[in-house]
Design a protein around this nucleic acid. Structure first.
Lengths: 110, 110
DNA sequence: TTTTAATATTGCAATAATACGATAAACTTT
DNA sequence: AAAGTTTATCGTATTATTGCAATATTAAAA
């Protein structure tokens, strides 16, 4: 018991769950907001910005990267991170479709 | 260690993390999509639709409700659930702002 | 009132996520 | 080459999430 039943859901449902899960922590929300403000930066900048140790930040960056929300380019001995536009557009159209449908329907709940 | 450090982040960052967390499971994505399709339904309908036991579905519904993404109205001895428009609009404008900013900047990552 | 129906809650086992010290890996600078 | 800089990985403790059987709760129906 307790094992994930993700195999019983569609690939699309799992993909969106992975994207949302990547944003399901205030530290990762903060990283995204910071990257949105500065455009791009190295890991050390984020470590200075957040109240978290370097390995913890590194792990959060890894999760954002695995989910496809950020990209990291090697730049000398540091790594430059930035937001991945396509993934945010994908999320945007998904949420937007729900939002628009709800506005059009103006449904009453029971 | 391992304790959450949410107190070190802003209220807004925590609020969005809670919303995203509610969608961070394929079962809850499936519930939202189902509710979007049918408008509103009772818990039993979702139990029939998903490959999960009744207590598990009830728990997922509770999480979506706590996050403010769905609403439940008592209807006799059953409970009628539907999507909460405001929360999806809030998510929509948040993601949309990021997406638009990325499109405008056309930034190159390092 | 007894039975049936629909959900929620409890308790527990299994798994996943969070955080960070210690350390490794890789590149720069001296 | 040696030392310094930057980031990733490992190991581990703690906490949170997931899933469901059993049970409780609440309201309708008989």
């Amino acid at each position: 018991m307790g094992a994930s039943k993700k195999d019983f859901f569609t690939d699309e449902q799992n993909e969106y769950a992975i994207l949302f899960r990547a944003l399901a922590h205030p530290a990762r929300v903060a990283i995204v907001e910071y990257l949105m403000g500065v455009g791009s930066c190295i890991c050390g900048d984020i470590v200075s910005e957040l109240p978290l140790a370097q390995p913890t930040v590194s792990q959060h960056l890894k999760e954002l990267k695995n989910a496809g929300l950020i990209r990291g380019n090697i730049d000398g001995n540091s790594i430059c991170y930035c937001l991945e536009e396509n993934s945010f557009e994908k999320l945007q159209s998904y949420i937007s479709a729900i939002s628009v449908k709800l506005q059009n329907k103006k449904q009453i709940c029971c």
